[in-house]
Amino acid sequence: MSQEVPQGSQNEEVDLGHLFNMIGRLFDRVYNFFKSIFKSVLSALVYVLKAIVDNYIIIFGSMIIAAAVGYGLEKTRKDVYLSKMLVKPYFDSKFQLVANIDYYNALIGEKDNKQLMSIFDIDEESAKQIIEFEIHPGPENENDQIKQYDEFLRSIDSLRAQEVSFESFIENRSIYSGDVFEISVKSHKKDIFRSLEEGLNSTFSNAYSAKKMKKRDSILKIEKNRIIASLKEVDSLKKVYIDIKREESQSDRKSFSTQDGFTYIEQRTETKEYELIEKQIKLQQELSALEAQKVEEDEFFDTLSSFPEVGSKYVDIRERYSIIFPILIFVLLSFLYLSKKLIQYVKSYEV
């Protein structure tokens, strides 16, 4: 038995050595794999840099010429000015607002300057200078988004609500979800925007919104009459309680005894003046809230910020030709260079 122990230990040492060799070969393969990737990337980078260095005169010369041409086109192009306003529609007039913005853009596309002149009360030359109308959801914070999400969940059934996450709602909501909207206008004329504001304000008025506003006023009137009637009842009860208290204060408390020897004292009438006062205060608060709602929403919209007198100069990145043209030239030269190398490789390839 003493001879079997060293033999087992020797077998274990052989297994461990074999395991370490396998681990070492695995690390070598991983190292060589990343090394080959690094060498390939480095070789490709050097190859690209070599092509640029060998042809730098053609490349940079062409890019400079393209930049000069692009800059010249930018200078000959008419300036574009941008202005924005924020509005808050009421009574679902936002639907009419979005529809009218699309209508104005259609008129611009068809060059129907007479309609634009009639809508915005401007001259023909000013109408020709309008480029585009745009409408987007106005600025909002996370609390506004959460309120919109809660309103959306209440508008659908509970099973469907479980499937719609907050992130999914924010990503897929429509433009009509918000309460504040940003209207932007682009024009070649920098001081036309205040003239357009009056015409835009008229877009909120429509039959549906007017009907909804009238319905709201009728409901408020009914609620107001109910609250006033309740306040009158409270006042009547208060007068009754006051009269009872006055009569009791003027009369003495009476007592009488029975044959059994028990003495009874007449109790004061229990009134609820405190509860009546609380009720009166609550009704007055409700009445104030109704009045405030009618004052705050007495129009179809509120203008949160108007168009400034003069718009700011607007440059679209897609129209920065002094940057786009050199990039296009570089891409074109790279394509031609690769095509040339490919053709040379195909011609020199032997099966």
Rank of each mutant, 00 (worst) to 15 (best):
R216A: 14
S36F: 08
L45H: 05
I122N: 05
Y264F: 12
E142D: 14
K111S: 15
E12Y: 07
E167G: 07
F169W: 04
Y90P: 00
L283A: 07
A44V: 15
N206D: 01
S251A: 06
S322T: 01
K238E: 11
K245S: 00
K245Q: 02
F166C: 10
K221S: 12
I135S: 08
E297Y: 05
Q148L: 06
T258E: 03
I324M: 08
Y31T: 15
E182C: 06
V46T: 10
S251K: 00
Q145R: 14
I327Y: 09
S334F: 07
P89K: 02
K75T: 05
L196S: 01
E134A: 12
R318W: 14
S174C: 06
E278G: 07
R77W: 02
I23L: 07
G17F: 09
F193M: 10
A51T: 06
V331F: 09
K75F: 04
N11P: 03
I175H: 07
F325H: 10
E74W: 00
E140Y: 14
A207P: 14
E273W: 03
L220D: 10
A127T: 01
I65W: 02
K111A: 11
Y31F: 13
V46E: 02
A289T: 09
Y149R: 13
S165C: 08
R160Y: 13
V80N: 09
F325D: 01
S177V: 12
Y81K: 09
L196A: 01
E142T: 14
K215F: 13
D191L: 13
E171A: 12
N55V: 04
K245M: 01
D54Q: 10
S312I: 15
E270W: 02
R173I: 05
M85L: 14
G61P: 03
Q259V: 14
S155T: 08
D150I: 11
Y149D: 09
V48P: 11
H18G: 05
E247K: 15
E350M: 08
I101T: 13
R320T: 14
G178I: 05
S218K: 07
D92Y: 12
E278I: 07
Y241P: 04
S339E: 06
H136E: 07
R318A: 14
K128G: 05
Y264H: 00
Q3G: 11
E134P: 11
P139A: 02
A127K: 00
K94A: 12
T258W: 00
S184K: 03
N55E: 00
T76C: 05
S36T: 15
D316F: 03
S339Q: 09
I59P: 08
Q162I: 10
Y176M: 15
S195L: 13
I324T: 04
E248N: 00
D298C: 10
L336V: 12
A207T: 15
S255F: 05
K111E: 04
S334R: 03
D54M: 04
K238V: 04
Q267P: 13
S312H: 11
M213S: 14
F95L: 02
Q162V: 11
